[in-house]
């Protein structure tokens, strides 16, 4: 009779289901299908999909490519608040840029152009890190051993921060990077 006793109808599976319950089950089912459809729809028509282009890599390999990119594309250097010289590398529209995540900084500073697509290669030298672009609020996991190539098109000029939002040790809160959009 109640939920803590065996069902009073021995053949409970033969009991009919009331109309409202059927209706609710149907709504829940259809809603699930709509949500399923939305994800597919967004893959086809949406403009914000996370790239699938990923390569297995090694920290040294990725660092070498990134350093080459920095050497070839640095347009100026900036002084950080701790007195360090940080290169600003400009990714040419349509081109490839590299962003290193490591304990505890994002390297280098990147410069992009509004409305122009670039490919940003992301990887970590050590632990997991979190690419959290603010105040846009795009969040992507960065994992050591994987090179993730993300195509991004900024929409508005400005100065953006990259917060690390995956816990990466004692300096985690100081791991702040920068992207300029001109």
């Amino acid at each position: 009779m109640s939920a803590i006793l065996p069902p009073s109808e021995r053949l409970w599976w033969k009991q009919p289901i009331a109309g409202v319950e059927w209706a609710w089950i149907a709504i829940a089912f259809v809603w699930g299908m709509i949500m399923f459809g939305m994800m597919l729809y967004w893959h086809i028509y949406g403009k914000q999909n996370l790239s699938n282009e990923v390569y297995k890599t090694k920290p040294e390999m990725f660092a070498a490519k990134a350093e080459k990119f920095i050497a070839e594309n640095t347009i100026r250097t900036e002084k950080g608040l701790n007195g360090e010289e940080i290169p600003v590398a400009k990714i040419p529209p349509g081109g490839d840029g590299y962003l290193i995540a490591r304990l505890w900084n994002w390297h280098p500073i990147l410069e992009l152009e509004a409305g122009k697509e670039v490919k940003i290669h992301l990887s970590s030298m050590d632990y997991n890190h979190g690419f959290s672009l603010q105040p846009v609020n795009i969040n992507i996991q960065v994992i050591p051993g994987y090179e993730h190539v993300v195509k991004m098109t900024p929409i508005k000029a400005g100065t953006y921060a990259i917060v690390c939002n995956e816990y990466c040790g004692i300096g985690h809160h100081a791991m702040l990077g920068r992207i300029y959009v001109k």
Partner: peptide
Amino acid sequence: TLGVSRRHWDMAFSGAPFQYEW
């Protein structure tokens, strides 16, 4: 929704090379 990170000690990012104001 405003972007604040989880597992994060300092919203003021003390010691970071840049500043960012939430």
